[in-house]
Amino acid sequence: MNILDTIMEKAKTNPQRVAFPECCEEKILQAARECADKKICIPYLVGTPKDIQKAAEDFNISLDDMVIYDASDSEKVEALIAAYCSGNTMFSEKSMRRRAEKDAMYTALMLQAVGEADVTFAGLTHSTGEVILAGQMVIGLKEGVNTISSVGIFNIPSYQGSKGSLLGFGDSAVCVDPDSEQLASIAITACDTLHTLLDWEPKCALLSYSTCGSGTGPFVDKVTEAVRIANEKRPDLAIDGEFQLDSAINPAIAAKKVNRESKVAGQANIIIWPDIDVGNIGVKLVQQFANADAYGPMLQGFAKIVCDCSRGAPVSELVGNIAMSCVRAQGEKHER
Rank of each mutant, 00 (worst) to 15 (best):
I42A: 05
R234M: 11
K94T: 09
G266I: 01
Q300K: 02
E130S: 08
S86N: 13
Q182V: 07
T211E: 07
V119L: 11
S165N: 15
A173M: 13
A230V: 08
K54F: 08
I42K: 07
F243S: 10
I156Q: 00
K94V: 10
D103S: 13
E57G: 11
A79F: 11
L45Q: 00
L183G: 04
Y295A: 03
A252F: 11
Q16V: 07
P157E: 06
P43V: 00
G312I: 04
K10T: 13
K10W: 01
D73E: 12
I40T: 05
T120L: 08
P178C: 04
I305N: 08
D179Q: 12
N155A: 13
P202C: 06
K222E: 02
L207D: 00
C41N: 13
G144A: 11
Y295Q: 02
D51Y: 11
G47T: 04
V306G: 03
G140P: 10
M90A: 14
R311E: 11
V176T: 11
N291L: 11
G282P: 03
I81C: 08
M90D: 15
I276N: 04
P314K: 03
N146Q: 08
E116M: 09
E201Y: 04
S214V: 02
N321Y: 05
E317Q: 15
F20E: 04
G282N: 02
Q136G: 13
I270N: 00
Q182I: 06
P202Q: 03
W273C: 09
Q287K: 11
D65S: 13
S74K: 14
S165A: 10
F59S: 02
P274C: 07
C307I: 10
G320V: 02
F91E: 09
R336I: 00
L45D: 00
D70V: 13
S86Y: 04
T48G: 04
M96E: 07
G331T: 02
G140D: 06
